[in-house]
């Protein structure tokens, strides 16, 4: 069971002077129960790719296969395939519309045809997921909330669908550091429960390093790198080519390497890096004596 992306090419505004090829022959597979990050500079095609996964955009060429079913095929099977992919948009707070937070989060589950009791249960769980107190918030208007809280309601609206594949397009963009950390912690927790496959678009290499088991780097609509974050982030030149900054720790080690003394840059946690720096420093001191 997996999402297979096969030779997907997508062109916006086809056959107009504004024609723009957003994806070029992209192929990869997202196996079940993985945590995959997608990175790339602004306009590299990340959001476009994500919208293919549940059939919101049909590829100009190629196929998207979810659990063996083409999401753009004719017939009723595709609906189930599409619904197994939950999609949290970039800036999802703009899609709220109901009178109460409860009703807004319940919109999706209701459309999926769940019973009232199931819906109430799902909403409760989803609100707990995004750290919103059920009793306190359920009857408030979503428009009375702050931007960050609205974001949480919007994310809860997708979580309540309990999708098998959860796609998050830059979920932390514009959140304050604390809200960001708690959201990422909850995503990680959901992943650790072992039922959900997560595909997350992120600009933050440190987050990717911490959370994802695999990272796909897009550059101008093509896959530039695909692999374990540690292996990918070692290739600093490649990251720069994709317009990305390596994780902070690697940036620091890079600078020590070029400006102070020779040291290996592939350390991915603070302790290892500190040990390596200390060892090298000691060695030099001995030599100096």
């Amino acid at each position: 069971m997996a999402i297979e992306i096969k030779n997907v090419t997508y062109t916006y505004m086809k056959k107009t002077p504004y024609e723009k090829i957003a994806l070029k022959d992209v192929s990869f597979t997202i196996p079940e129960k993985n945590f995959i990050a997608v990175a790339g500079h602004t306009g590299s095609g990340k959001s476009t790719l994500m919208q293919h996964l549940n059939g919101l955009i049909a590829p100009s060429y190629g196929q998207i296969i979810v659990d063996g079913i083409d999401v753009n095929s004719k017939g009723s099977a595709k609906l189930k395939a599409r619904r197994s992919v939950g999609m949290v948009f970039q800036y999802p707070e703009q899609q709220l519309f109901e009178e109460t937070i409860f009703a807004d989060i319940a919109f999706g589950p209701k459309n999926f045809g769940l019973s009232e009791t199931q819906i109430a249960e799902r909403v409760k769980k989803a609100m707990a997921f995004v750290d919103l107190d059920y009793k306190q918030y359920k009857d408030l208007s979503p428009f009375s909330l702050s931007g960050g809280q609205m974001r949480r309601v919007a994310i809860a609206g997708i979580i309540a669908l309990e999708p098998k594949y959860l796609v998050l397009d830059e979920p932390t963009a514009g959140l304050d550091p604390q809200a960001k950390r708690s959201l990422l912690r909850n995503i990680k927790k959901l992943y650790n429960e072992g039922k959900t496959t997560i595909i997350m678009v992120s600009h933050n290499m440190d987050d990717i390093l911490e959370l994802a088991g695999r990272v796909i780097v897009l550059n101008d609509g093509q896959i530039l790198a695909d692999g374990n974050p540690k292996d990918v982030f070692r290739q600093v030149n490649l990251l720069h080519k994709a317009g990305l900054e390596p994780p902070q720790l690697i940036q620091l080690l890079e600078r020590i390497k070029t400006e102070v003394f020779d040291i290996s840059v592939d350390k991915f946690n603070v302790d290892d890096a500190a040990d390596a720096i200390y060892a090298e420093w000691r060695r030099r001191q001995k030599h100096a004596r």
């Binding site: 549940n54 939950g86 948009f89 999802p92 703009q94 899609q95 919109f107 999706g108 459309n111 999926f112």
Partner: peptide, 16 residues
């Protein structure tokens, strides 16, 4: 553009 995005977002929530 905004309409397009909102339609897609609500579709993702099962609006048909």
């Amino acid at each position: 553009g905004e309409t397009d995005k909102i339609i897609k977002a609500q579709k993702s929530r099962g609006a048909d």
